[in-house]
Amino acid sequence: MTDWIEHFRAAARGLIVAHVWRGYGSTLFLELGELTPSRRRDESPAAPRGEIGLMIEWSWRIEDQRSVLCGSFSDEEFWALTFGRLVGREVIGLSTFGRLPEILLSLRDGLDVASFMTTEGDPAWTMFDRRAPECIALC
């Protein structure tokens, strides 16, 4: 898995967070780099997709240098404001941490997005590389 983390680290570094959106429940999506329009199976418009994508199904948090700004269990009223703070920021790092690999996306100006599973099972995050005709996914 280390080689794949390095693949995504290199691919994400320097990209800009172009779009942040909420999926089902508290699922968080961050779209990095140039956006491409997308459609659902029924052909209705869907959220645009970035060159690189990060999905954290649940148990995530967004941090600044001193505190947690919001997380998957925060009041949803804080989400939109905090998501907006991520857009336009450059990715400066991507790493995993912990015995069971959690993901940490570090952005310029001290903001971080982290997964952290809080119940039984595996961490619930996935990275997508959509730069080639075939999407590469790591979860």
Rank of each mutant, 00 (worst) to 15 (best):
R9P: 03
W4L: 12
G50Y: 06
D64C: 05
R13A: 13
S74D: 04
C70Q: 00
H7Y: 03
I16S: 11
G110M: 03
T27S: 15
T27H: 10
D112L: 07
A47T: 02
P101W: 08
P37C: 02
S95R: 15
S26Y: 00
G23S: 05
A18S: 15
I103A: 08
E102L: 04
A10E: 03
D42A: 02
T126G: 05
R39F: 07
C135T: 14
Y24D: 05
R108K: 14
G88F: 09
G84P: 02
A47D: 13
R66D: 11
D3H: 11
A46F: 06
D64P: 10
A137H: 12
E76P: 08
G88A: 08
L32F: 15
T96E: 08
L86G: 11
G23K: 04
V68C: 15
E90D: 06
M1K: 09
E51C: 09
S72P: 08
G71V: 10
F128P: 04
C135H: 10
Q65A: 15
L28W: 08
L35C: 00
L111K: 04
A18G: 12
A47K: 06
P48C: 06
S106I: 04
S74N: 06
I52V: 15
R39N: 11
A124I: 01
I56P: 10
G14K: 02
L69G: 10
S59E: 11
G14V: 04
M55E: 15
A114F: 09
L104M: 14
V17E: 02
R61Y: 11
A12V: 02
I56R: 02
G93F: 12
E120N: 09
R108Q: 13
R130S: 08
F116M: 11
L104Y: 04
L69S: 03
S115T: 11
H19W: 01
I136W: 00
I136K: 11
E6L: 00
D129T: 07
G84F: 07
G23P: 10
R22Y: 00
I16G: 07
S59V: 02
R131N: 09
G25P: 10
A18P: 07
L94G: 14
